[in-house]
Design a protein around this nucleic acid. Sequence first.
RNA 1: GGUCCUUUAGUCUAUCGGUAGAACACCUCGUUUACACCGAGGAAGGGGAGGUUCGACUCCUCCAAGGACCACCA
Length: 780
Amino acid sequence: MDFKQEKEIAEFWEKEKIYRTDFGKKGIFSIDTPPPTVSGKMHIGHAFSYSQQDFIARFQRMKHGIFYPFGTDDNGLPTERLIEKINNVKSKKMSRKEFIELCLKTLKKITPDFIQDWKNLGISADYEMYYSTIDKKTQKISQEFFIDLYMKKEIYKKEFPTIWCPECQTSIAQAELEDKEQATLFSTLKFLCNNKELLVATTRPELLGACVAVFVNPKDKRYKWAVGKKAKVPLFNFEVPVFEDESAEMEKGTGVLMVCSYGDKFDVDAINRKKISPKIILNKDGTLKIKGYGGMKTKEARKKILEDLGNNELIKEQKSISNIVNVHDKCGTEIEFIPTEQWFIKILDKKKQLIKQGEKIKWHPGYMFKRYKNWVEGLDWDWNISRDRFFGIPIPVWHCKKCNEIILAGKDELPVDPLHTKKICPKCKNIAEGESKVLDTWATSSLTPQIAGSLTKNKIKIPYSLRPQAHDIIRTWAFYTITRSYLHENEIPWKNIMISGFATLGGQKMSKSKGNVVAPQEVIEKYSADSLRFWAAGSKLGEDMDYQEKDLVTGKKFVNKLENASKFVFMNMGGYNGKKPKKLEPLDKKFLIELERTIWLVTSYFEEYEYSRAKFNIEDFFWKFFCDYYLEIIKKRIYHGTGNKKLSAQYTLYRSLLTILKLIAPIMPFITENIYQQYFKKNEKIKSIHLCEWPKYGKDWIKKWDDKKIISHANELTLFIDLLTQIRAEKSKAQKPMNSECILTINKINYNDLKDVLEDFKNVTNAKEIKQGDFKVEFI
RNA sequence: GGUCCUUUAGUCUAUCGGUAGAACACCUCGUUUACACCGAGGAAGGGGAGGUUCGACUCCUCCAAGGACCACCA
């Protein structure tokens, strides 16, 4: 079984529409599939987490039928950056129309190949239940929901110093910030107050021109003399007030804090609190608009200003420190705070309710809820949903410049681009101006349950059964989706959320910049998709897992073992009619009971999203129990046996192999399908193993364990295997082959317990005779 | 600074408080009517200190190391 055969199987699935949603089935399990960001190729992290969700999807399909849509996230900043890279262009240097066309054209070209990676991995989504977060239908939904929130007064527009990326030239959300450590000069500057030096330490001297106040702590006796007076800003020579404020910490720097518009979040807060009017010296591209430094980028200006300060002997002290700055996660650029008009969704007033909503959802693993809760509790800003970019869903709004009226699009005209549609202000009859900002991707992807649901004519509604996703986007995707479902429908979006971890290499998170990436495409070609999935099934849910090539080898061996075992079974099926024998041989019965217990275990684990335990149990049962014990035990019966003895073994082989294949099918869909098609389909009649019914087990195994008959079967099987192991050990010790003839002596109690299965025991040990007495193995 | 996770054989990973179980690697042997991508057997393990308990890898406290997220970041 190799990559090429897997491809053929994938084509078969596609052609036969094996994964088409069957709305006729009862109790459909609905999945809010993550739409991957179109970014060239699938990476191994995708392969890891999508495999894990697919295990659950395939299991549920065999139990109930499922709704498993597939979307791609292809608007917003990440996509713009990709398009810019592929085409080597800069969006801000093109016309909006031109750039949007280029985006759509490029996406059309690259998306099919991108999705193909998911198909090659065997992700069993219904690819016809497809949406893209930029397609017309999605735009309509996203705009409709925007209008809904606006009408509910949950959206507002405000001029506010927002987190701004000078590189991408857009405002961004709190969730898009990352920390970056860097070396900076920490300079102590000479302000003048009453002709005395007032020393202020700063890492951002380029903002001197934007200084609006100086704070000292009210408890700080060192600076009492300056409070209430004016301080002269070095180099710029304008005066700013000196205030007392608790926020100035005495131990930091000189204890004197310079407030600028805007150096950080704190400045924003301080300036609002003290009602100081800001001095804005930064342009949106991060350059300064101030005499002497105009047009310089902040870093350049910083250098020049320090030089100028130095030349005027205005620097008291300077040292090099390492400090942490906030950067934009998409481009790594230091963010600024620039006042712009933006659209916000009110969330700060709903923290409690949002935590409550989170509590109603079952988190797998449970502790992931705490991460969600932490994030909600730590929120400082309302959710900024507008972006000053081109390729996104337009905000369906017009402004009347004259009377300040805001005009919403009508629901029947959606989707709409306000820049391409003219509106007359209903109040003053002037021409209104279309909003040029677009919605942030998250403002749309937070609606994936509603978007996917619309593909089913709303047969599928929230709450879905499951949201699978990785832990890095709890604060964004999970949080925003919970928020939207709450705001629009006062409902949770899903009943369960399953959080997967990351694939690491040598304990390190894989990233292109570190150069430690493993391409799943190459792994699939070398080891097969089943092996890759087998590896992904090895980690406990939520845990990161280290990529190790040996794990792929293990997966490949498993595929091979399945193939060989199946080959053996069907080599010996001659004359078997598929019927159950009148009476099962005792050993076969015991074996089938053990199989049933495994079904029970595996089912319970899959139901709890514990696919790694499910995998472990099937693997163990198949390899150890089925191959190493059962096949060896019944070989003689199969080769030389006749009548019911042979038939019973054949029946047991057929049923148990098919069951094993079904149990492992969610994890290894290709090899199981292959074997099913080759051997089982003609009897079972169902088109694909993945449409077969999940194996059943007697109702309640926990109760069954109290059943004396079952216990004695299990005990006898255990005894059988224990004795077999002892005999094999004796043969090993004597350096004899496993099939060497011998005379066995076992104690009387064991002998009686094994009476039913003594013939099988004799066969597998190749004993000529079994005597009663002290344990002994004699070789002939 | 806060919240959370992890720490088990050389490596990687499991184990409702009751003799720690696999896999890879290692050692010894065997096998050709499913499989050398095999079979049998072997050696090898719980970060540190306390506590709860008849009994702790498992529960609690503290410490140490690693990781994630958040906060701080003049």
